[in-house]
Design a protein around this nucleic acid. Structure first.
Lengths: 187, 187
DNA sequence: TTTAATTCTAAGCGTTTGCTTAGTTTTAGA
DNA sequence: TCTAAAACTAAGCAAACGCTTAGAATTAAA
């Protein structure tokens, strides 16, 4: 009936993700994506609809890659210590996946912090709220803490996690480790 | 001999600064600057040379605006407590100056974190190194701390300050306050 | 009042952006 | 083998980008 695709959508999507991860959304042009993905603009648009569509798929692709980390985090039962482990993982795992610095999701959160893109903003807020909720649950396992303390600490750790993701793009391993250790001394 | 300028360079520079502050470098076009500054592109280029030249002047302009905060920080003599006060000021002062969220310099640091712009990168590294050095001096006023502890804590606070600046663009006053208080709890 | 230096306006330069489309090639079913 | 649907190539679209320039308007010194 018809010709079949000469590329694998998952494969080219991973290449797109890697490029978006390195450069961010605005600093990645469709021409750059063509080269990285090894397919023509027509193919990009027929498979993913638009640059934004491709970006959203790239975010999903990244999420599934780091999902094991979230699962480990959810399923552990050591309260605050799980959060600390999660901090270490969230620096290490992205390096293992793509050898790129920083978390693709948090980089995106920063890039779109005050932009008006509704689709991407929704994804980001969901992501951050999800993490915050997990933090709250972990902190609550210490029954001696009242509700206000739990919320304050969850909020503190969320901002610290956010700062960590920014730092992991620039700072070295030792600096990152010192930062995490001192962050949890305050809890 | 010749016609005189119909605008004040300092006045239009402050308007440019305000626009760059709100939108960042890449998301501010020369057309937008024209409107905000109220002068023609020709005038922008004859006064500031290039978009980058105008941006560098805007950074300088911002620096001079927040200089009082740095002076207060340098001249205080309460060690760690000065740093905490500096954290509070660095959230509050930018709001007082321009009613915009976040620190223009740190926003810029983030935007150019992995860019190749030499001029702007130099300015940013200088800025961050300056703050780090001040942190070290403040922490050293506690003679009980050995050199390694001083450096670790300085590094920790620098990353925290960085995270704070990002957070101040998004989070509310109470969240910011909780964050600062917990950051200094065990220092 | 003339003159020449400078500022101003506004059009337009070449390049890059995201995206589309005309036209060719491939390929599975009739 | 023929046909039609899908995938491909490559050229090109309008808009926006940073920046320049031709020419008119202004103004202080001669």
């Amino acid at each position: 009936m018809a010709r079949s695709k000469q590329y694998n959508e998952q494969e080219v999507l991973e290449k797109a993700m890697s490029l978006f991860w390195r450069n961010g959304y605005e600093n990645t042009s469709v021409r750059m994506l063509e080269k990285e993905m090894g397919i023509n603009q027509f193919s990009i648009y027929s498979s993913f609809g638009s640059k934004q569509g491709l970006f959203l798929e790239s975010l999903k692709c990244y999420k599934s890659k780091v999902n094991c980390m979230f699962e480990k985090f959810k399923n552990s039962t050591n309260g605050i210590n799980d959060i600390k482990e999660f901090f270490y993982d969230s620096v290490q795992i992205p390096i293992e996946i793509g050898n790129y610095k920083g978390c693709f999701l948090t980089n995106t959160y920063n890039e779109f912090a005050e932009a008006e893109d509704q689709m991407i903003n929704t994804q980001m807020v969901e992501f951050m709220d999800g993490i915050k909720q997990l933090f709250i649950e972990k902190i609550q396992t210490d029954k001696s803490k009242d509700e206000q303390t739990v919320l304050k600490q969850a909020n503190y750790l969320l901002l610290a996690k956010h700062g960590l993701a920014a730092a992991s793009r620039v700072n070295d391993k030792q600096e990152i480790e010192d930062y995490i250790e001192l962050t949890f001394k305050n809890i």
